[in-house]
Every structure is written in structure tokens, then in C-alpha cells.
């Protein structure tokens, strides 16, 4: 606190083997747990938003532990934009499909004519699941791109 503030790249901190190895082990389990939270969102605590934040946090952890370049190699900027758009499209598309098939906006039981053997009750559960997946995709992309923008000052090159 006493010494003058220095930029992160001037600090004598190199890559640490312990941090990199533990993140290498940790990140797949974080992503698996995030997928569990999304998939079980309508039975148990959790849902699209929480699972999306967890998925985004795994890429943020990658960007902190290694480098922003590493994180952007595993999750390219173009895929980020595409997934954010896909998430919003899934959400509104499901709602509009319900409206077009004769129900109200986001009234999932109206989706029954798409696959009648499921029945309206199962379709309600299915519709919630589709919407949660859309929310999860959008939240993950927005969280990761927020961190990238803030960490690199909008230049998307170096990061913290």
C-alpha cells in the first residue's frame, strides 16, 4: 500500500505451476456443475442464470490463471457474440412460437402440436428447459465479455 501502484505487467509475478495445475483440474468440474445447475433448474435450486454465471466464471478463471489470450482461444470472440445472440433468440423464439401456435406468450403448453406424444404437462417442463438453456447461453457470453472488456480496457488483447 505504501509503494506506488504499478501496472500488472510490470510486477515480478510469473506464471505459477500450482495455480495453473489446480485451475486445469478445477475448470472442467466447474463447467460440469454449471451444466447440472442448468439442466436441473426446474426441479432444484438453480436455473439458467446461475448456471450461465458459473459457466462464465470458469472462463474468467481461465483468463485470470493463465492469460486472456488462452481464454479467448478456448472461447473465441466470434463464438461469444454468436452464443449471446443464440440465447436471446432461443428465449424470444420459444415465446413467439407459443404465441404463434395459439397460446399466450411463453405459455409452453401451446407447444404440444410440435410433438404430441409428450402432452401439455411434459411440454411445459420442456419449454422451461429450452428457455433456461437460452438464458444460460446469453448470461455466460455477457459475463465473459464483460470481464474481457474490463480487464483489457476494451482492447481485448492482454488482460490483467
Amino acid at each position: 500500500m505504501k509503494d506506488h501502484y504499478t501496472l500488472p505487467q510490470d510486477r515480478p509475478i510469473g506464471p505459477s505451476l500450482i495455480i495453473e495445475l489446480s485451475c486445469r483440474i478445477l475448470i472442467p468440474f466447474i463447467q460440469l456443475f454449471a451444466l447440472y445447475v442448468i439442466a436441473h433448474g426446474h426441479y432444484s435450486p438453480g436455473g439458467g442464470f446461475q448456471g450461465g454465471v458459473l459457466l462464465g466464471a470458469s472462463y474468467i478463471l481461465m483468463a485470470i490463471a493463465f492469460d486472456q489470450k488462452t481464454s479467448m482461444r478456448f472461447f473465441p470472440l466470434r463464438a461469444n457474440t454468436a452464443l449471446a445472440g443464440t440465447g436471446v433468440f432461443l428465449y424470444t423464439g420459444t415465446g413467439l412460437a407459443c404465441a404463434l401456435l395459439g397460446g399466450l406468450f411463453l405459455d409452453y403448453s401451446a407447444l404440444e402440436p410440435l410433438f404430441p406424444p409428450l402432452g401439455p404437462v411434459e411440454w411445459r417442463s420442456m419449454g422451461i428447459f429450452i428457455v433456461e438453456v437460452g438464458v444460460g447461453l446469453a448470461v455466460m457470453s455477457i459475463m465473459v465479455s464483460l470481464f474481457w472488456d474490463l480487464a483489457s480496457g476494451g482492447k481485448m488483447d492482454k488482460g490483467l
Binding site: P8, V53, G56, I60, F147, L150, A151, L160
Partner: peptide, 13 residues
């Protein structure tokens, strides 16, 4: 989780 990381990223800049 995420908001404190965003705060720290902003403070470092």
C-alpha cells in the same frame, strides 16, 4: 463471485 472480480479488474485499471 463475478461482481468482485469485475470490481478488482476495474480497480487494477
Amino acid at each position: 463471485g463475478v461482481s468482485s472480480i469485475l470490481f478488482i479488474a476495474t480497480i487494477l485499471h
